[in-house]
């Protein structure tokens, strides 16, 4: 039998603190994501999930702590540098460029292909591959304006736009928020499809069922602190954590 190395760590976060103006939001948050994993960052509204993502992307002015992407420190860098190093961000409010067409939105996100440290190619995306992944986008055609799409369609476009940057790791903020149940199902399929193509994902989620469908592991966040970490099975078994920090 061949001895397999455990998958290398993609993202390591240690002692992350962040502030909105004078308000201290995140307190010594720490977690990690390994290559090929889908990890859920869970918690109720206001727990600090989106703030964590924005802090990782360098979008918050005042932040402290170490963030390493594939061993490189990204904590002090600008959002564009962080994105250029292979961290993709899908914001919860989608932030589609509504004046641009579908094709143009994808073009804005385009970056060169990447390689893993062992020189094997990282997942590489083209508009064609994305249209295959999201037939809805294909149906609308590349010239549809971003502003003339439903919420669910915009959700697909915003994911596709981020994938055009060929990220090592995608931060997916609340993919199931505010879209129709049928789209939620599609999002779950999409996440699994991405995973099968070798994309690693850190998603934030309130919905336990959704997270169970797609994730390998979970961290639970409350009031800006990590309260639990473990596999999805461990979370499912831990009634205490679910009741205290997750169910409404």
């Amino acid at each position: 039998m061949i001895h397999r190395e455990p998958p290398p760590t993609l993202l390591t976060v240690e002692g992350l603190n962040a502030w909105y103006g004078a308000a201290h939001i995140l307190f010594d948050v720490g977690f990690e994501v390994k290559r090929g994993e889908v990890v859920a960052l869970m918690g109720r509204n206001g727990a600090g999930k989106s703030t964590t993502f924005k802090t990782l992307m360098g979008l918050l002015e005042r932040r402290k702590g170490t963030v390493k992407l594939m061993g490189q420190d990204i904590s002090g860098r600008s959002p564009s540098q962080i994105a250029r190093m292979g961290l993709g961000f899908v914001p919860e409010d989608r932030r589609i460029f509504t004046d641009l067409t579908i094709a143009e939105n994808l073009e804005v996100g385009r970056q060169a292909a990447r390689r893993w440290p062992d020189d094997s190619p990282a997942p590489e995306w083209t508009p064609q591959k994305l249209y295959d992944l999201f037939p809805n986008l294909k149906e609308m055609g590349p010239d549809r304006l971003g502003g003339r799409m439903s919420g669910g369609e915009q959700q697909m476009l915003t994911v596709s736009r981020t994938l055009m940057g060929n990220p090592y790791l995608v931060l997916l903020d609340e993919p199931s928020e505010g879209v129709a149940p049928v789209i939620v199902e599609q999002m779950a399929h999409m996440i699994l499809a991405l995973k099968s193509q070798g994309v690693s994902i850190l998603l934030s989620e309130q919905n336990v069922h959704f997270a169970e469908l797609v994730s390998d592991r979970a961290y639970v966040l409350e009031k800006g602190q990590i309260r639990f970490s473990g596999t999805m099975a461990e979370l499912a078994a831990n009634e205490e954590v679910r009741r205290s920090y997750l169910t409404v």
Partner: peptide, 24 residues
């Protein structure tokens, strides 16, 4: 042009543009 597309994107949401890796 790509440049023009980026300019129009910047007109709408510069923060998102930078989070997509565009040095502005």
């Amino acid at each position: 042009t790509r440049w023009g597309t980026l300019v129009r994107a910047a007109t709408q949401d510069r923060e998102m543009l930078s989070a997509l890796g565009v040095h502005q």
